[in-house]
Amino acid sequence: MTWLDDIAAARHELDRSSTAARVADLLRDRITDGALVPGARLPEEDLCRAAKVSRNTMREAFRLLVQERLLVHEFNRGVFVRRVGADGLSDLYRVRRILESEGVRCAHAAGPDALDRVRAAVEDGEAAAADGRWPDVGTADIRFHQALAALVGSPRVDEMIRHLMAEMRLVFHEMGSPREFHEPYLARNRRMYDLLAAGDHEAAERELRSYLDDAEAQLMRAYLEKERPDVTVRSS
Rank of each mutant, 00 (worst) to 15 (best):
L115R: 00
E74R: 14
M165G: 09
R69F: 05
D213T: 15
T57W: 01
L71E: 00
N189D: 08
F62G: 01
P43F: 00
R97I: 08
A197G: 02
R117S: 05
E13A: 14
Y193T: 02
M168E: 13
P229C: 05
M58N: 04
I98V: 15
E44P: 01
R63M: 01
T32Q: 11
A149L: 06
L195T: 03
L208V: 09
I161G: 07
G199D: 00
A203W: 04
G153I: 00
R206E: 15
E45P: 00
V233M: 13
E216P: 08
M160I: 07
H108G: 11
L208M: 10
L26E: 02
V171A: 08
R119E: 04
V104W: 04
T139P: 04
Y211E: 08
H182M: 12
D15T: 13
C106Q: 15
G103Q: 07
P43Q: 02
V137D: 07
D46F: 00
V118T: 03
G88H: 06
P178G: 11
D131N: 13
R190Q: 08
G39V: 06
A204V: 06
R133P: 03
L219E: 10
I142N: 15
M168C: 10
W3M: 07
E13R: 15
E167L: 12
W3K: 07
K226Q: 14
L170D: 05
R83M: 03
D158L: 05
V152R: 09
D91E: 14
